[in-house]
Structures are given as C-alpha cells and as structure tokens.
Design a protein around this nucleic acid. Structure first.
Length: 376
RNA sequence: GUGGGUGUAGCUCAGUAGGUAGAGCACCAGGUUGUGGCCCUGGAAGUCGCGGGUUCAAGUCCCGUCACUCACC
C-alpha cells in the first residue's frame, strides 16, 4: 500500500501535486518544510507555525541526540509530545550535520566518527544508531544516514561516498524493520523511510545512486548533496537529470533548498518536498521576502516607512506592523524582531507552495510561473 | 589655588626613534540553501581640543591656552 498519491499533474511541465500519508495526518505536496532543528522552528510557537500554514516540520537527529538526548524525549513519547506539535515531523539523519557542523573524525563503513560542536565529546553515528534515534524521536518520515561530501569533489571520492551511502541505506532499512518489531504499535505508528541519492555533480553517478536506492525500495527518495556551493545552473542540471529517474509513484524530496525561485523551478522539474533554512535564518538576519523580491529590513530607507513588509499580505506581521517598527525592533535586536520576521517569511513560503499546488490542480502551472516572474 | 593625568572617527581607544592617521563597536550596503539568533565581504566617516614655535616634514618635540579628571590645600 502506497503512502503517496498523485492527484494532479501539469501538462506542460513536470510539476505534480499529491497527498502524502503520515502517522500524523496528510501532507499536500509540493510542500515546504520549515527547519526546526532543535525541536523548534526558531522563534515560533507551534500555534504560530500552524497559523502560517505549516503542514510538516523538520527536526534534526544530530542536534536532538546531542541535546537534550533521547532519554529526555522518550519520556514525552517522542518529539511531537515534547515540542507540542501534533502534525507530521520529518527528521534528518544527522549525516549532513556531521559533515557541516561537527568536527568530523573518520568515516568508515561502520559509521561516522565525529566530535560534538557543543562540548567536543566524541561520538559514532552509524546507520543503525541514526534510525534508532529517529524512532525514539517518533518521527513520521525518517531519513537514511548518508555521506554528504563537499563541493567540489573528485569523481573517485564522490563514487566512494555514494557507494557507502548505498550500503548505509540498506542497513537503515534493515534497522527500521527490526526497530518496528520492538515498537508498541498501539501507541505509535511506524514511520516512512526515505533514501538519499548522492553522486555529486556526476550524472552517471547520480544515476547509479538512484538505481541502487530504487532497488532497495523506500517510501520516498531524496536528492542530497545539492546547494552545497555549486553554481546554480549545475544544481538545476543535476536536479533535472535526477528527478525523472526516481520512481514516479513516490515522493521526491530535494534536501536543503532553496530560494523562492529555486522552489518554483524545482517544482516544475517534478520535486515534491523541500526544506531550507533560508526563510527562517534570513528572517533573523533581516531579509524579508516579498513578491517583488527580498528586502532588507535594516535598510535606512525604511526608517519612517509606515507600510507593512508587503501590502496585501495577510500574515500576522503584515496585518499589524509597519516596516519602520520592524526595522526598529531589528536594529535594537529585540526578540520580537526574530518572531515577527520569521512569521512573515514562513507565511510567504507557505503561500507560495499553496499557490503552486492550486496552479497544478487547475493545470495552470505555466501561467503561475510566468506571473511569478512578472511580479518581480 | 597647587601638583599630576587625559584630550585622535558617533563611542572606547591604538599610534612605535618626528615622515600629512588605524582598530573594535556603532552607522551604511551586500551576502547567507538537509540552522550556532551566527558569521562573512565591502563602504562612509577625523582641519589628531585650540593658538603659536622648532623642523624639509609635527598626532608625535617646545611654549601658551581651553576643557575634562584625580590628588592635596
């Protein structure tokens, strides 16, 4: 039985709309998942997240394992109870964070040795451990541990990383099956497991990775190792190449991307799921999204500006506050600045996705895309 | 009143043996792609308290003066 159903497709692009079933309800795709690394989308309460239209959030295995630790979260029957969020959660495997945040020790077949960015303590993250932690978190969608490499990377290194990722993916699947055996299915439903395609910027390696993972069979497929510093054309080229060779009846998730433009283009190429820190991190750094492009709320030109961030925007922030006030809060580093800015940006992203879904339902994605660029 | 100290960018201060000025913060503007509320990159900004003098050349040496400050009367 499949947990993903496609409900509409664009005739003129690769865009598609679907419904993803999870243990905590349905998710309409294409979907953007705000990043809630430490069991919170920074500065927002779950209620505010819902008011912004958030369907599903992302949590991080790496961070939550290090702090507060599974022993704490287990007492709340998982992350949902701990953070008071009863909609779906997807958890990252920790692979990317080990590669980007921790002081990476050695990667062996066994797993990734790393030192915590918090206290320097040493850890070993194996595929089994990653699955075990994600099960403990009670995640609805769990990700396989992968070996995410830097850009640029040699062909040899890229190939080794993708082969390791494949071996780890098999182990993750086995670990999940064993883990489900020990779950109390009367209180928690088993999660879905997604595989992650690697292969860097080499198309044949991407193809091999996609084939390997398809053979193992997962509930969904992610494309990892993009937006790691490569030129944007290459990012689109690799996404364009890889998306069609993944099983069409499964959700396709592009990890760690992107700007509003990236999302529109990647949806057009057939991607269903996204996560990215841009709307939240940039909100905390004063960059606010509008239909005409991003603005920097710290700019002096907003000092006396009585208008909202975006006229016509129906988010809480724009309904109530002026640019001048938001600039003041930001310049003064007031805590409310982070919250109000994040509300607007998340709302903006959620509306963007909603408009894309509607356009796909009506088979008008091309018109939508044209209008999107004309609005700038 | 007497003696000492300090006056350099909006703020806090560096400026070595005299060679027409720098940093941090703030300000202005960019960046930010499976998150350390960080960080990075540029930019604008000073008649060096004021007035004389010495010198080819003074923020720097000398004289005077003003302001602030500390100690003692």
């Amino acid at each position: 039985m499949s947990n993903f159903k496609i409900v509409a497709k664009s005739d003129t692009t690769g865009a598609r709309a679907g419904v993803l079933q999870t243990a905590h309800g349905e998710v309409e795709t294409p979907v953007f998942m705000p990043v809630g690394t430490l069991g919170t989308v920074k500065s927002l309460s779950p209620q505010e997240l819902m008011e912004c239209g958030t369907q599903i959030v992302l949590g991080n295995t790496y961070h939550l394992y290090l702090r507060p630790g599974c022993d704490v979260i287990r007492r709340f029957s998982g992350l949902h109870g701990f953070m008071c969020w009863d909609r779906p959660i997807l958890t990252d495997s920790g692979g990317f964070q080990v590669f980007s945040l921790a002081k990476l020790g050695k990667i062996t077949d066994q797993g990734a040795f790393f030192q915590s960015h918090i206290d320097g303590s040493s850890h070993l993250l194996t595929p089994e451990k990653s699955v075990e932690i994600q099960l403990c978190l009670g995640s609805d969608i769990i990700m396989c541990l992968d070996d995410c490499i830097k850009y640029p990377a040699s062909r040899k290194h890229t190939q080794e990383a993708l082969e390791l990722t494949t071996r780890w993916a098999k182990r993750c699947k086995n670990a999940l099956q064993e883990g489900i055996g020990s779950l109390d299915l009367t209180v928690s439903k088993p999660p879905s497991l997604f595989g992650i395609v690697q292969g860097g910027m080499f198309k044949d390696l991407r193809k091999r990775s996609a084939e390997n993972l398809s053979e193992i069979t997962f509930s969904g497929y992610a494309i990892g190792g993009l937006s790691v510093g490569e030129p944007k054309e290459i990012m689109f080229e690799i996404a364009d190449f890889t998306l069609p060779i993944l099983p069409d009846n499964k959700p396709k998730y592009i990890m760690g991307t992107g700007t509003p433009e990236d999302l529109v283009e990647l949806v057009a190429l057939g991607a269903d799921m996204f996560d990215c820190v841009i709307p939240t991190r940039n909100a905390r750094n004063g960059q606010m999204f509008t239909k005409k492009g991003a603005i920097n709320i710290c700019n002096a030109r907003f000092k006396y500006d009585t208008k909202p961030i975006e006229s016509g925007c129906t988010c809480y922030t724009c309904q109530n506050y002026s640019r001048a006030y938001l600039r003041h809060l930001y310049m003064a580093k007031e805590l409310l600045a982070y919250r109000l800015n994040t509300i607007h940006n998340i709302y903006f992203y959620m509306k963007l996705m909603e408009h894309m879904r509607t356009a796909i339902y009506q088979n008008k994605f091309d018109e939508f895309r044209k209008a999107f660029y004309e609005g700038k």
